[in-house]
Design a protein around this nucleic acid. Structure first.
Lengths: 113, 113
DNA sequence: AATAAATGACGTAAAAATACGTCGAAACAT
DNA sequence: ATGTTTCGACGTATTTTTACGTCATTTATT
C-alpha cells in the first residue's frame, strides 16, 4: 500500500480533519441531529428518517461509528443507536459545541455578511 | 443536470455539511491555521507551507474561498491571503470556536478571538 | 522590449466517497 | 420448521475529490 498523502500532515491536523469529514455530509448530520434530539437511544430503522436507500444509510452509520460519534448495539433483532458521549465530548473539547449546532440546524439562515 | 442527492435534505443541513466539508482536509486546516496564527494577512506562496504540489494547494485555496473562509486579493504580482472574518464568524455562530480549535492544534492564542 | 517570477486556469489520471442491489445471518412470529 | 423482519456484509457503478503537469496571464526586472 502506497503512502497516503494525508500522512504528510501532523497527526493533530489529520485527526481534526477526520472529525470534520465525518460531519461533512447532510445525511450524517441528519442522523446525529435525530439521535441528539431524543432523550434516549433509538431502536429501529434510521433508514426511514433519511431520504436515501437503506444500504447507503447503513454506510453513513458505519462512518459515524468509525468516527466515534455514535454507537450501535445489537438488541435482539434490532439495533440500538445512541450518540457516543465520548465522541461528542471530543467535539466539545475541539470547540465544536454540538448543542449549539443542533439548535442552529433548525433556524440557521445563511446571509451574506 | 440531474437532481443531486444532497437536494433531498433541508437547506440548513446542506449548508452546515458544506462548511464541515471545507474543514475536512488537513491541507485546508493547515492553511487556515497558518493564516489564523498571523497578525496580518499573508502575501506569498502558501505552497511552501503545505507538503503538496502548488497546483493542488491552489485547488484547496479555491475551496476555502468558495466556502467563504478566506479571501485572496491580488496585489501587484502577488496575492494577499487573509482569513475572511465573516466566514469565521459564521463558524462561531454555528458553535465552532475557531480559536479553541487552533489552540488544540498547537496551543496558539489569537488576539482577535 | 525581453525575461523572469508568481499565480490562477485548464485538462486529466488516480483515488475516494457515494449510492444502491443483492445476499446472508440472526431473531422473531406463525 | 417455515416464513418474515431486521440489518449488516459484499460487490459495483457513478460521481466527486484529490493531485499534479502544463499553459496562460499579469506584474516586476533588466
Amino acid at each position: 500500500m502506497p503512502q497516503a498523502k494525508t500522512d504528510l500532515f501532523d497527526n493533530d491536523l489529520q485527526e481534526l480533519a477526520l472529525i470534520f469529514k465525518a460531519l461533512g455530509h447532510p445525511a450524517r448530520l441528519q442522523i446525529l441531529k435525530f439521535l441528539g434530539n431524543r432523550d434516549a437511544c433509538f431502536s429501529g430503522d434510521i433508514t426511514e428518517i433519511v431520504p436515501l436507500g437503506r444500504t447507503t444509510v447503513n454506510q453513513h452509520i458505519a462512518e459515524l461509528k468509525k468516527a466515534g460519534l455514535i454507537k450501535g448495539t445489537i438488541q435482539g433483532s434490532k439495533t440500538n443507536y445512541c450518540l457516543n458521549p465520548c465522541g461528542i465530548e471530543k467535539l466539545t473539547k475541539l470547540g465544536i459545541d454540538f448543542c449549539t449546532e443542533l439548535e442552529n440546524i433548525n433556524n440557521f439562515q445563511s446571509k451574506e455578511c
